[in-house]
Computed example of a mutant assay.
Amino acid sequence: MKKLLSILTLLWIIPNAQANNWCESNIDKLQLFYVNGMYTTPSGFVSNIKDLDDFQDSYLTQFRKNGVVEGSYNRYEGHIAQFYEVAKQKYQDLDKYSQEYVVLTSILGGFITELSTEEVSIITPVLIEILSYLPDHAIESEVDFQNASIRLKSLLSDCTRTVLICHSQGNFYANALVNEIVNTYTYPNGIRLSDYPMLGMMSIASPASSVGGNFGHNNPSLVGVLTNNNDIVMAAVQDLLGAVPANYDAVDNLLDATGHSLADSYLHLHGQASVIASKVSSITTNLYPMPLFEQHPSSSSAISHIGYSEISDLLDIRFKHGGGYRYHNVPSQVWDSFYWSTSHGSYFNRNIKDKYAFEKIED
């Protein structure tokens, strides 16, 4: 009977111990979340997700992958309705065989990247004229934004390093998302995201005036941007909306005369893809993990729990008397030796104490 009780007790302890450290064990994994542009069709959204997944597998192999690239499709009904109302006023004065008519039809139909080079040449004045009449629109009030927020928060509950990959007008959504979530989200372990930011943002072909809004201003190392200098669509709105300037010297692309397509003009071109990967890598490395004490219990008489992030070189130690401390720039070799040592307390005194910068992160 005692043996049976011991087995049952063990079966209860193991899963509960795993539940306690499950969140903190994911902090060195990377999750990408796609925020699509204004005229992305549902099939285009699915295709872009696949292209981003292939991009991660090819260019970000240094990070463990949490899962396939995720996203929440934004239909942008509010923006498109406003754009359509202004645009159709111009329809009344346009010949249906004119280039202007073709451009507007293509934009409203979501086929802007399929225009010819000649047709692309008139996109800029058409867009500027229409965009100049558009009223302000509250993105946060849209159902699509709320759905994206719910989906992203669900992914953050995995406690992974999460980076938004936002394209075109999706940057406006992403700016709103990061600011709303950073200010309100709390991890399953009770830690606030605002205290330990594990969410970053990579902007591609951005029409926004900033990358990440207030979040990006306060955390410049957690955001990045790349826009082709031959991206005709972004050139159309940079002066009008005060968008961040183009920062990549691109060559003409026969597959996409606009220089704007997420896949053909950014992810499928090695130069652009390499720069995007470098920026995402920097963002991922600069994300700051929550306290990691629950990763591993310790049998030491002085130490109760320990945890480590290989990406950030952070070692967290919770002492039985004195609270929890974070040690910075601790090499992975030191962590491995510390973890496997027969006495955590003795190893700490010999090899860690007074050798690394530290801070107290738990009373």
Rank of each mutant, 00 (worst) to 15 (best):
M1I: 11
L11D: 03
W12V: 12
I13Q: 03
A17G: 15
C23S: 05
C23Q: 07
C23M: 08
T40F: 06
S43V: 10
K50W: 13
D53I: 09
D53E: 13
L60E: 00
T61M: 12
V68N: 08
Y73E: 07
Y73G: 00
G78A: 04
H79T: 04
I80K: 10
F83I: 01
A87K: 00
D93S: 11
D95V: 09
K96V: 15
Q99N: 15
Y101P: 13
I112R: 01
E118N: 11
I123K: 02
E129N: 15
I130V: 14
Y133T: 14
A138L: 14
V143W: 09
I150P: 08
C159M: 13
C166Q: 05
H167W: 07
Y173V: 15
A174K: 01
A174L: 05
N175Y: 10
V178H: 03
V182K: 03
Y187N: 08
R192A: 08
Y196S: 10
Y196D: 11
M198A: 00
M198F: 05
L199F: 11
L199T: 05
A205S: 15
A205C: 03
S206L: 03
S209Y: 05
V211D: 00
G212E: 00
H217Y: 11
S221E: 08
G224T: 04
T227Y: 02
D231G: 01
M234K: 04
M234T: 02
A236G: 15
L240G: 00
L241V: 10
G242S: 06
A243D: 01
Y248R: 01
A250Q: 07
N253C: 04
L254F: 02
L255E: 15
D256Q: 04
T258E: 00
H260P: 13
S261Y: 05
L262A: 02
A263Y: 10
H270W: 10
Q272F: 07
V275Q: 14
V275F: 14
T285Q: 13
Y288C: 01
P289W: 01
M290H: 06
L292H: 00
A302P: 04
S304G: 12
Y308L: 10
L314T: 02
D316A: 02
D316I: 08
K320E: 14
K320D: 10
H321C: 07
G322K: 05
G322F: 05
G324S: 13
G324Y: 06
Y325W: 15
R326E: 04
Y327M: 02
H328M: 14
P331S: 06
D336Q: 15
T342R: 11
I352K: 05
D354F: 08
K355N: 12
E359K: 11
